[in-house]
Design a protein around this nucleic acid. Structure first.
Lengths: 165, 165
DNA sequence: TATTGTTATACTCTATAACTATA
DNA sequence: TATAGTTATAGAGTATAACAATA
């Protein structure tokens, strides 16, 4: 009763390894995002950065990179591009002048609704096979993996579990 | 009873967008695979190619690329590397001399058990937060998305649904 | 003409190390 | 001494177009 027995046997794939399937689908949706977001002029990376910044006010680059799982050094160029288009702003943190506080700009905010609509549309296409309920279930499973994998995969001592502050 | 209420509220993330979460986790597990498979001397790509070839006898490069979701032009270099290490073999298809039939070699087969063990170990770490049952559920959800997304995301006419033959 | 594999190219992403300014 | 951001660089991965051999 899991899946209808239709051509279930016909599937090749390495169905044993859910990990490779996850990796493959991750690449597939990134590609899908890229084509769907291209008209707006944003890459998937830039899009998720903008959405994250709108959701979580101003943050340090460190924190943003941690949340988006982007290396601090790679984040620089990404933010440079967004800043060049006036979609985000960087300013020194008065409390710790080493930090740059990154925030979404007015122009970024104006764009982000359109961005979110495009992203949601892309997802509706990509996850069309799942009901809204199943999509929620998938999200819950992935979020639990995300939380635990953060500490389980890198060589961190248990107890170091900072969720990106 | 879903997740214990421990620091559940502390999570930032763009929880609305399951797609970005999927993309992010896909990159994360690829990175994890890379470090875990490095001692064996294989990349995640090469690993999944080997596993796929063992599962599905000899196939054309076209078919393999489709299954692994790798562009035909990119597959060439990947197979060159594997062939240079005698892990796979390429030979002309007598029935259609344009085709190269790719197969895993004896040396590849000898290595693949070790490879599979390493991959399984990496997955056990990565998906530690999920029970075996939940992992199966996740796999089913992802496989359904994978099947439908193939035709839904690229501009294909419905009815063109060749599952990589 | 169309398809398979190949080459070349360019662009994105990823990972590492070294530097600077601040703490 | 350690941390935040930056720069430079090298390595994977991705996408496109053009070509040779074959159908």
């Amino acid at each position: 009763m899991d899946t209808p027995g239709i051509e279930q046997a016909a599937r090749p794939q390495i169905s044993r390894h859910v990990g490779f399937l996850l990796a493959q689908l991750g690449r597939a949706i990134t590609r899908h995002y890229r084509t769907q977001l291209a008209p707006i002029g944003l890459t998937p990376r830039e899009t998720s950065a903008l959405l994250q910044l709108r959701a979580e006010g101003p943050v340090s680059q460190q924190a943003l990179g941690c949340t988006l799982d982007v290396d601090a050094s790679n984040l620089v160029a990404l933010l440079n591009d967004l800043e060049a288009e006036n979609l985000i702003s960087r300013r020194r943190d008065p409390d710790d002048r080493r930090r740059h506080l990154v925030d979404i700009s007015d122009r970024g905010t104006a764009l982000v609704d359109q961005v979110e609509e495009a992203a949601a549309g892309a997802e509706d296409q990509f996850f069309a096979a799942l009901t809204a309920e199943e999509r929620g279930l998938l999200r819950d499973l992935l979020e639990r993996v995300s939380e635990s994998a953060e500490t389980a995969t890198v060589d961190k001592l248990p107890g170091d579990e900072e969720t990106c502050t």
